[in-house]
Design a protein around this nucleic acid. Structure first.
Length: 583
DNA sequence: CTAGGGTTAG
């Protein structure tokens, strides 16, 4: 039978399928034509019909159709497995793969990479290991595509050692394999490993691409490795590479999280293409530095440009408001999110709201917000924000309520015990402080190890509390003692409150004086040019005493000091901090 | 007739 389209051209059924695209009604019409013209055994036709139906999200139809085909071939299966993962039916990919094995259809590297990708998107380690066995049995163990897929699969399942083993055993490492391994480390928070491997890649003479750079920039953001991040940016400029939205976002985020928000803005302004992600990254960069006004300006500009904010944008906006004390702006944004953009608040939005209200001293309102979150259950992050605000405004009653809720949710988190202990100490209930400490000892909980990093000459140095591992330890400690003395002369007195939880009395003074961020600062001051900016990254929140000391140190050394802590940035200059002690 | 692995904001 010959079919004609609207223009009376002769067209094939295959062409009709192409015209139907991924619309289910036209696809079913073509399906009827396939049946009536007796073409149901034409595998190219049926394959196209199947993958199109899958793309149309008609997964039940797709499934029924597949099981009605008498002789599906290898190509049909691999296409279908790939398509169903792509359109978020990874479970069906596994079903189709099992059916393929069951039908004794010859396996292919296409089918295997597709099903491994499905396992990765499900983070289903067991299923993936099972497929890995098939890979070996079917003789695809040395296939470069399959191996790269396995590397990213194991990395996705947090099995980095296994991923690395597969990677190391590859006869040749393709660019994609390097990228999978580097991104695997970065995604699992092992930024230093990612950078190590990147250096290894360069040493092996392998050319990297923009995907590599995105992962490495992300690793730089985690570590605050501004030098390496700048190197990547220079590389992009030197080679005249086009900065698309993805690499642009990575650069904005890197500069923002490495403390150079001016440079982040420069990159943002230079972009030819902006999307919701680039706008959000810029808002977030301003927000974490406490530049609330600038963050809101970008937010308004974004809307003027016709770009709709999404749920993530509002997390950035609300968090910017929280860090800058912009309560009325934050309230307006929250209301607008619900009313104008039909975005249902998620837990992250609630955390920011509680944080914003709480920091501003509106503790009852913050508490009420938690009560009104229904049906969403408050998480540890919500109570941590509440507790932090109670500590800031010395509200012991609500602080204890927050603390008890926090402990009920995460009874083994050492950081919570420290916060709770601080609340009791503030209330003068030293018996309770003692009790909390005993529970910690009893549960075998150790305080989280605080550490600070600083980059000097493109190399990152890590310091932990009372660290003596550095070869220049003596010089650093002597210089730090001298600095503290000079600060004392101009009015600094140590704030002991932040070491209330240290186990032994004599450890307090010592711990305070040799906190990781102080060691990193002393090292940085010794090893960098007079007048240059010092940048430090701390894994936990900066402690009260270090915060006070750094203000004095910025005066006596005439240096600008930028510290990124767990939550935000602090810019110390001429004796004050950009957070205005509002952190 | 038909295809494949990796990456981006809180």
């Amino acid at each position: 039978m010959i079919y004609r389209d609207a223009h009376h051209h002769r067209v094939s059924l295959y062409h009709f399928l192409l015209l139907a695209g991924s619309r289910i009604k036209p696809l079913q019409q073509v399906h009827c034509q396939i049946i009536t013209s007796g073409k149901t055994t034409s595998l190219p036709l049926v394959t196209k019909l199947l993958t199109s139906a899958c793309a149309a999200k008609a997964i039940i139809y797709t499934r029924q159709l597949l099981f009605s085909i008498p002789n599906p071939d290898s190509f049909l299966f691999s296409s279908l497995i790939k398509t169903s993962t792509k359109h978020s039916f990874p479970r069906d990919s596994l079903v189709f793969y099992r059916h393929m094995v069951h039908c004794n259809v010859e396996c292919s590297n296409h089918a295997l990479t597709a099903v491994i990708k499905a396992c990765a998107s499900l983070s289903d380690l067991g299923a993936g290991k099972n497929v890995h066995c098939h890979v070996i049995v079917f003789g695809y163990g040395l296939d470069l595509f399959v191996q790269a897929a396995l590397v990213s699969f194991y990395a996705k399942c947090n099995e980095l050692d296994v991923a690395r083993k597969v990677f190391d055993e590859m006869p040749q490492r393709t660019l994609v394999a390097w990228n999978s391994m580097i991104s695997g480390y970065e995604q699992n928070g092992l930024a230093d490993e990612a950078i190590k491997l990147f250096n290894c890649m360069r040493d092996s003479g392998v050319e990297f691409d923009s995907v590599t750079m995105v992962s490495v920039l992300s690793a730089c953001s985690q570590l605050g490795a501004l030098g390496l991040g700048q190197w990547i940016h220079e590389y992009v400029n030197r080679n005249g590479l086009y900065v698309n939205a993805t690499i642009g976002t990575s650069l904005i985020n890197m500069y923002g999280r490495c403390g150079d928000v001016i440079k982040a803005r420069e990159v943002f302004e230079s972009l030819n293409q902006q999307n919701v992600i680039t706008w959000t990254a810029m808002i977030s960069a301003y927000g974490m530095h406490g530049y609330g006004k600038e963050a809101m300006e970008i937010f308004h500009l974004m809307k003027l440009h016709g770009q709709s904010p999404n749920a993530v944008t509002f997390v950035a906006v609300l968090s910017a408001c929280a860090h800058a004390g912009l309560v009325s702006e934050g309230r307006l944004a929250y209301a607008s999110m619900i009313q104008n953009y039909q975005i249902t608040p998620r837990i992250e939005h609630h955390v920011s709201m509680v944080d914003m209200l709480g920091r501003a001293g509106l503790l009852n309102e913050a508490y009420q917000h938690i009560q009104d979150m229904n049906p969403i259950k408050p998480t540890a992050a919500v109570w941590t924000a509440m507790l932090g605000a109670c500590k800031m405004h010395k509200n012991i009653t609500l602080g204890v309520v927050a603390a008890e809720n926090l402990l009920a949710i995460e009874p083994h988190h050492p950081g919570h015990f420290v916060l709770i202990s601080n609340i009791y100490a503030m209330a003068g209930q030293m018996d309770r402080v003692e009790m909390v400490r005993n529970v910690m000892i009893q549960k075998g909980l150790k305080k989280q190890v605080g550490y600070a990093t600083i980059e000097v000459d493109k190399k990152t140095y890590l310091f932990s509390m009372a660290d003596t591992s550095h070869p220049e330890t003596d010089t650093i400690y002597r210089y730090l003692d001298e600095l503290i003395e000079r600060c004392r002369e101009v009015g600094y007195t140590p704030a002991f409150e932040s070491v209330m939880h240290e186990v032994e009395e004599e450890e307090r003074v010592h711990a305070l004086r040799y906190h990781s961020e102080k060691l990193a600062l002393a090292f940085g001051l010794l090893r960098t040019e007079e007048g240059s900016i010092i940048r430090i990254v701390k894994n936990l929140r900066v402690c009260e005493d270090c915060h006070i000391a750094f203000k004095f140190i910025s005066v006596v050394t005439k240096r600008k000091i930028i510290v990124r802590d767990k939550l935000r940035f602090h810019h110390f200059e001429d004796g004050s901090c950009s957070c205005l002690d509002y952190w």
